[in-house]
């Protein structure tokens, strides 16, 4: 089915709704149907390569707060589909794991769990992949500061001998952001608070 469009999917999966998209076909899928939908997409619609698993944090006051995002490619039809699935629970978000049908989901889900704190039910080994295991936060959540939060050093014995701590990074007027247009000098990444670096008039 090379011309998989929303109508043809809707025929099969009544629970899907169309999602705004600037590029590929995109659908919203309720979390309880996610597994069934992705299995059918893989087996019957040719979407056989899971390319990315990530999530969106819509900020603490929004509900639903977390949305899981999946990009699946059809290697025969050369078309992508984006599936978005809202987490029902805002405080302890969770989604069904796709690791059983797409082995590629394994590490992607671990990363999303690490960064966003979404638990993937049925994942074979859901533990952090980037941060160390006892790390208490999920750094890509909206409320987490870029500089970090002071926490104990990963290994207690090393922390003692080296007298080390995990400290917030000095931002020095940052983060460094670039503006969309302007001369080369204006669009290069720079801190908003210039008191730390060169003043505009001194350049």
């Amino acid at each position: 089915m090379s011309d998989a469009n929303f109508a043809s999917l809707k025929e099969r999966f009544a629970y899907l709704t169309e999602r705004d998209s600037a590029d590929h076909l995109a659908v919203n899928c309720p979390a309880e149907h996610l597994l069934e939908c992705c299995t059918a997409l893989r087996d019957d619609f040719g979407y056989d390569l899971l390319v990315d698993v990530t999530a969106i944090d819509w900020a603490a006051e929004t509900s639903p707060r977390f949305t899981g995002i999946y990009h699946i490619l059809s290697t025969t039809h050369h078309a992508y589909i984006r599936i978005a699935s809202d987490c029902v629970d805002d405080a302890a978000p969770s989604l069904p794991s796709l690791a059983g049908i797409f082995p590629a989901a394994n590490w992607h889900e671990r990363e999303t769990y690490d960064m966003m704190g979404i638990r993937y039910e049925g994942h074979p080994d859901l533990k952090r992949i980037l941060m160390w295991e006892d790390y208490p936060y999920h750094p890509l959540r909206k409320e987490f500061p870029l500089a970090g939060i002071e926490v104990p050093f990963p290994a207690a014995d090393v922390a003692e001998t080296a007298n080390a701590k995990v400290l917030p990074a000095p931002m020095m007027g940052g983060p460094f952001v670039s503006s969309a247009d302007g001369t080369m000098r204006e669009i290069e990444p720079q801190a908003k608070d210039e008191s730390w670096t060169e003043k505009e008039e001194n350049r």
């Binding site: 500061p145 080296a162 990074a169």
Partner: peptide, 13 residues
Amino acid sequence: YRSYATLQGVDRI
């Protein structure tokens, strides 16, 4: 890398 994940100088350890 002024971020939560990076040690700000190896001289800290």
